[in-house]
């Protein structure tokens, strides 16, 4: 069994309407997502805004209520709250915005020590030593424990967020667009660092993002989401070099090419994909514009195609 196994996960949010505010319909934010993560690997969850990628991540860690489906972590069912408490320290999250995810009124030591205080009974002295160790690990000076978040740059703040996430030596980290708010050079720092601690601590990442360059750089396996469903899943190689679903093709084609000399080809290629997208839209999406169920192409490569026949 895989390290993290998500089976047919659904997260539906009610829409209230009418005079009495009854539930008239649901937003199917996540509508039947299955994925599995290997230990020590990085899994990329990709999609555009509104695709349900963030909701999926939040549901796995318990920040969104699961409507139905099963989440198994390291052999434990963590789909409901009760069973989750045992593995809570093993699964941590890194958030997108390093500016708003840290409480501005708290000192670094309090931010980083917060999970320690919840799960481990340490003396003040032990706690301070642990926090300093953690800061050193993320490349911040141990003297900075008494500073406030605003005294740090964006990249440093994201490191504080990471220090907090790894304080309890988790096994799985869900990283929700951890570098989207950062400049490229700072982004490089954070990405390098995430790879370093992955090896050091044998971490598994669920990396949620929309920047395909970053995803390609970081991930071993990728799942593409669209309107709450998977359209394609495969190894990084398969997704980027041999995309099968028209939506994936369009996504890959939209990535700006870093070589200005290939402009013409790129434009032409994009035009072709666009034409194909428009012509074959109905072959890839059902009447409601949603993706079909995944069908295997190879052992690792799954594509959402209508059932044959």
């Amino acid at each position: 069994m895989a390290f993290l196994e998500v089976e047919d996960l659904k997260v539906h949010f009610p829409i209230k309407g009418g005079i009495f505010g009854r539930t008239v319909d649901y937003v199917r934010a996540v509508d039947g997502v299955s994925l599995s993560l290997e230990k020590g690997k990085t899994y990329g969850l990709v999609g555009e805004s509104g695709s349900g990628k963030t909701t999926t991540g939040r549901a796995i860690i318990g920040l969104n209520k699961i409507t139905s489906g099963k989440v198994t972590f390291d052999g434990n069912d963590i789909s409901n709250l009760k069973s989750r408490s045992e593995v809570r320290k093993d699964v941590q999250m890194i958030f997108q915005d390093p500016y708003s995810s840290l409480n501005p009124k708290k000192r670094v030591i309090d931010i980083v020590a917060e999970p320690l205080r919840n799960f481990e009974k340490l003396s003040k002295k032990e706690e301070k030593i642990r926090v300093q160790e953690l800061l050193e690990l993320v490349g911040l000076s141990p003297e900075s424990i008494l500073k406030y978040p605003h005294e740090f740059s964006g990249g440093q703040r994201q490191r504080i967020g990471i220090a907090r996430a790894i304080a309890l030596k988790p096994k799985l980290i869900i990283a929700d667009e951890p570098v989207s708010a950062l400049d490229v050079s700072v982004q490089a720092q954070v990405l390098n660092f995430m790879q370093d601690i992955q090896q050091e601590l044998d971490l598994t990442y669920l990396f949620i993002g929309h920047d395909l360059g970053v995803i390609k750089h970081m991930c071993d396996k990728i799942g593409i989401m669209y309107k709450g469903r998977y359209v394609e899943e495969g190894t990084t190689e398969e997704i980027f070099n041999n995309p099968q679903h028209i939506y994936t093709k369009r996504l890959v084609a939209a990535i700006p090419d870093i070589d200005p000399k290939r402009r013409q080809e790129q434009t032409q290629f994009r035009q072709e994909v666009k034409t194909e997208y428009e012509q074959s839209y109905n072959d890839y999406f059902d009447d409601e514009g949603l993706a079909y169920k995944l069908q295997p192409v190879t052992d690792t490569h799954l594509v959402a195609l209508p059932e044959k026949g």
Partner: peptide, 22 residues
């Protein structure tokens, strides 16, 4: 800058990090 963008770097290789901060 060029060396710190994941796009151009070989997959999984280290990205270049500019020392210090802006």
């Amino acid at each position: 800058l060029f060396n710190s963008v994941p796009n151009t770097a070989e997959a999984q290789s280290k990205l270049h990090v500019i020392q210090g901060i802006v």
